[in-house]
Simulated assay, not measured.
Amino acid sequence: MTCIETEEQVHKRQLFNRPVASIECVHRSLEDYLDETDLDSPAIIWFDYTEPKGVTAQIERFARTIGTVPIGSILRITLNANPESLGKPDPKEISVEAEGEVSTDRAQKPTTQEWRLARFKERLGSLYPSGLSADGMTQKNYGKSVLRALKLAVEKEVLSFRDRRIVWALATHYADGQAMVTAALVVCQNEDDTVEELVTGWEFYTTTDAPHRLDLPALSTLERLTMESNADARVKMGFELPKSAMGENPLEVFQKFYRIYPHFSRVEL
C-alpha cells in the first residue's frame, strides 16, 4: 500500500500515524507519482481531492488514468460537492426567490442558483453536462451535477480504447463538514462480463446517476445504541432527528448503512 500526499505537514502526520510499517508514505503529487510509476498488475487507486477550484483538471486526470492502468484495476475519486465553492455573488447583482415569492427585479437579474450555474459552466468548459438547470446548483443536487460531469468525461475517454470498458460500482454523496461526492469504477476487458455480474449483485452497487446519500447528524452514544437495537427507533426516542440540506431521512440512512457508519469513542488503555 502506498499513500501519496502533496502537503508536507500532512505527509509527516501520515508517517506518524500509519498503522503498519509496510505502508509507504510518499511526499509527492499523485499525478507525478502515476506518471513515473509503471504498474505491472491491477491496482486500486483513489484520487482523494478536496480542492474545488481544480475540479476540471481532477476529473480529466481521473478519466485519462482509465487508459493507462492494467485491466482489472479499480479507480475511485473524491470531489468537492459544495456549491458555495463556486463563489458568492454580489447581493446587488441577483434577484431573490423565497417561498414562491420573487423580487421585482427577477426579469433583469439571475437568482443565486442561476449565477452559480454560469460559474459552473465556466469552470467545467467542455465537461459541462448538457441540459443542466439552475436546480442542479442547490446543496441537495450539486453533487449529482458534479457526478454528471465526471460520467461525461469518463465516457469520452473510454471511446478511445477497444480493449477495455468500465463498470461503475459505487457512487456516494455525503457531508463530513462540507458536501463531497465519490465514485468508483472497475476497468474491465471489453468482452468480459464477469466483473459486471459480480458488481451489479453487490448490495451497495450504484452508479453516478443515483448515488447513495450518506447524511447523518452527529449522534450521541445513547441515540446510536437505541437506533441499533430498536426496529422503530423514532417511537422509542420520541423525537425527530434533524434533516440537512440534502433532505434525506436520517433514520432510513442509518438503517441502511449503520454497519459501516463510523463511530468514535475515547478509550484509555
Rank of each mutant, 00 (worst) to 15 (best):
V235H: 09
V158G: 06
L150S: 10
V96W: 12
R116T: 12
Y205I: 02
D35E: 15
V181K: 05
P242Y: 11
A183N: 11
G238H: 09
T104D: 14
E84P: 02
D192K: 00
R259S: 12
E191M: 11
D35N: 13
A153P: 15
L185F: 11
D40E: 15
A149E: 04
E155W: 05
L241S: 02
T65M: 14
V158A: 13
V20K: 11
E84V: 01
I71T: 13
I260W: 04
S126A: 14
V158H: 02
M227A: 06
S126R: 13
Y128H: 10
P262M: 08
E155I: 09
L124W: 03
D163E: 13
Y205W: 07
I166S: 02
A210L: 12
E223N: 08
D163W: 00
R259I: 08
S145F: 02
S229I: 03
E97Q: 14
T138K: 01
V10A: 11
L15G: 13
K53Y: 13
M246T: 08
R213T: 15
R116W: 14
N82W: 04
T56N: 12
G54F: 03
E248G: 05
R106P: 00
W115A: 03
R116A: 11
I74C: 08
P70Y: 06
A210Y: 13
R123A: 08
E93D: 15
D90N: 15
V187T: 07
L117Q: 11
R266N: 12
I77G: 06
P110M: 03
A63L: 07
S85M: 10
I4M: 05
F264D: 02
V55M: 14
V187L: 12
Q189E: 15
S85P: 06
P110H: 06
L159D: 10
Y33C: 09
K256V: 03
Y205A: 04
T112C: 08
L219C: 12
E196F: 01
R259V: 10
N249P: 13
S130V: 09
S244N: 11
E203G: 03
V167Q: 11
A183L: 10
A231G: 14
T208D: 09
A57M: 11
F239P: 00
L86I: 04
M180R: 10
L159H: 07
V158N: 08
K236Y: 14
A107S: 14
T200C: 12
P70Q: 02
L15A: 08
V69I: 10
R165C: 08
L216N: 07
L147Q: 05
K121R: 15
L222V: 15
K243Y: 06
L214S: 00
G238K: 06
K121T: 10
I45N: 04
Q139M: 14
Y33A: 07
K140Y: 00
I44P: 01
T2L: 00
L39Q: 13
E97K: 13
K236A: 14
L251T: 04
R162Y: 13
S160T: 10
P250T: 12
A63E: 12
E99I: 09
M237Y: 00
V187K: 07
G247W: 07
R259F: 11
L170T: 01
